[in-house]
Design a protein around this nucleic acid. Structure first.
Length: 462
RNA sequence: UCCUGGGUAGCUCAGCUGGCAGAGCAGGUGGCUGUUAACCACCCUGUCGGGGGUUCGAAUCCCUCCCCGGGAGCCA
């Protein structure tokens, strides 16, 4: 039998058509002689209304049919006289494929707290909110590839297991095949990773950037889109230990090209979500009241504010606002400062550029002033940093001296320095935290609610 | 990791300076011919996070541990 999902049925169905639908019961309402069942199958936000009247055999079967049950229903698609839906199905045959005991089923046809839903992560995709999140996440994932493919970027697969521990992006998870009860020791008593699976200490990647750089320095424009791991003990609404990151890297490009790409990228994604996930976005607007369709339209149309770090410091100092943390040139911007810029001053995305070299990574291009680097952060209201990027240092001497200053051992990094020895060229890229983007667009305030299986310190399930 | 708020019925929460454990929703039964998280009536539902202490008496006060938010730091 050829199955049709509810999304297709609503889009392409014709009144009078015989249909069979499959899904899970979202709610049941009954009156004398008539029963209404709302059924969903994940394909779309709108549930399908099933009608059972006393004259059908299926009517009896609804007694056993509670919220959460998996059902198969056959009948006639017809225009709905009721408000709220275009079609409904008058059901002649109802099969309960899997019951859901109403005394034990953890989901009810009412609002649950997001905290509670996190405890039943395997069932929460059946809720309106999480279904909408997953559909938006899917639209965005596909749009990421559409955006880069349409610009001839090559999708490259950088490794999940890496030997680079000097990227400086945070603590790393060790990957090992050693017997943890009795690991081999060297003469100093330290664990001897030369006896490990790969012959050296290996980690889960914290960024594909360094590898993406050598791919860009041969393929031109490339991007990665894959999982990333940070062993930081971060307990916030915008950090995960395992998250997905998108990292484009462009050869023959400077910071300005990088910023333009970042803005075009975010705007493209907002536009695509509005086109393809209207129902879901409308739901977020209505129930969570954080991100509106109008706001998304505005973001997709108007250029982002650009401000240099130096200008930002001056603006904060002259603002007359009291901050908990000091504002001084040379100090990093704190959350409260970023929030002030995005939420109070500019009320939208802000791109801060040209940070002092001492608070940024060693690989960022040193500016002519010798004190700042060609870096940029994209900041969003409510989220903070969503993108961190830079033009990369392409001068061998400058790079090695910056590595020395940052005390980064160079023996293991000769391959990286080779890119500056042979055919070096200006290049730039950035990293975008995918879940933070999903958060921003849906208005979900906790990052744990935009990924199916969140990994955070002290918590792992499934 | 630090600061801060919380944990009471299946879910969401009220329960004041210590004095009989509560409501809405869900569930059950009945009613209602078209509902939209339906509605109306009645019924059922408790390790008050765990342990210890103070007290005639603790959900309430004290100590301790566990868990969950929010904020901060680290970052995407």
């Amino acid at each position: 039998m050829k199955k049709i999902n509810i999304k297709r049925l609503i889009e392409q169905g014709k009144s009078g058509q015989q249909v069979t639908v499959y899904g899970w019961v979202k709610s049941k309402r009954d009156s004398k002689g008539i029963v209404f069942i709302a059924v969903g199958d994940g394909s779309t936000f709108e549930p399908l209304q099933l009608i059972f009247t006393e004259d059908s055999i299926a009517f009896q079967a609804t007694a056993e049919c509670h919220t959460g049950a998996a059902i198969q229903a056959s009948g006639t698609l017809q225009d709905s006289p009721g408000k709220g839906q275009k079609f409904e199905v008058s059901v002649k045959e109802l099969l309960i494929l899997g019951k859901a005991d109403p005394d034990k089923y953890p989901l009810q046809k009412k609002r649950h707290s997001l905290e509670y839903l996190r405890e039943i992560g395997h069932l929460r995709p059946r809720t309106n909110t999480f279904g909408a999140v997953l559909r938006v996440r899917n639209i965005l994932s596909a749009a990421v590839h559409d955006f880069f493919q349409s610009r001839d970027f090559i999708w490259v697969h950088t490794p999940v297991i890496t030997a680079s521990d000097c990227e400086g992006a945070g603590d790393l998870f060790t990957v090992t095949g050693l017997n943890m009860d009795k690991p081999p020791r060297d003469s100093d008593g330290n664990i001897d990773f030369s006896k490990d699976f790969f012959g050296k200490h290996s980690y889960l990647t914290v960024s594909g950037q360094l590898e993406a750089e050598f791919l860009a320095m041969s393929m031109g424009n490339v991007y990665t889109f894959g999982p990333t791991f940070r062993a930081e003990n971060s307990n916030t609404s915008r950090h995960l230990s395992e998250f997905w990151m998108i990292e484009p890297e462009m050869a023959f490009a400077d910071l300005d090209d990088d910023i333009t790409l970042a803005q075009d990228f975010i705007q493209f994604l907002c536009t695509r979500v509005l086109e393809k996930a209207g129902d879901d976005i409308a739901f977020f607007e209505k129930f969570y009241k954080v991100m509106t369709i109008d706001q998304l339209k505005r973001i997709s149309e108007s250029p982002f504010t650009r401000i240099s770090y130096t200008e930002a410091i001056k603006l904060l100092q002259d603002s007359g606002s009291k901050f908990e943390f000091p504002v001084n040139w040379g100090l990093d911007l704190q959350s409260e400062h970023e929030r002030y810029l995005t939420e109070q001053v500019f009320k939208g995305p802000v791109i801060v550029t040209d940070y002092p070299k001492d608070i940024k990574a060693f690989y960022m291009k040193l500016n002519q002033d010798q004190t700042t680097v060609a870096a940029m952060d994209v900041l969003l209201p409510g989220i903070g940093e969503i993108i961190g990027g830079s033009q990369r240092e392409d001068n061998l001497d400058v790079l090695t001296s910056r590595m020395a200053a940052a005390k980064i051992p160079q023996e293991e990094m000769q391959w990286y320095l080779d890119l500056r020895r042979f055919g070096s060229a200006p290049h730039a890229g950035f990293g975008l935290g995918f879940e933070r983007l999903v958060q921003y667009i849906t208005g979900m305030s906790n990052i744990r609610d935009v990924i199916p299986c969140p990994r955070t310190p002290g918590t792992i399930r499934f």
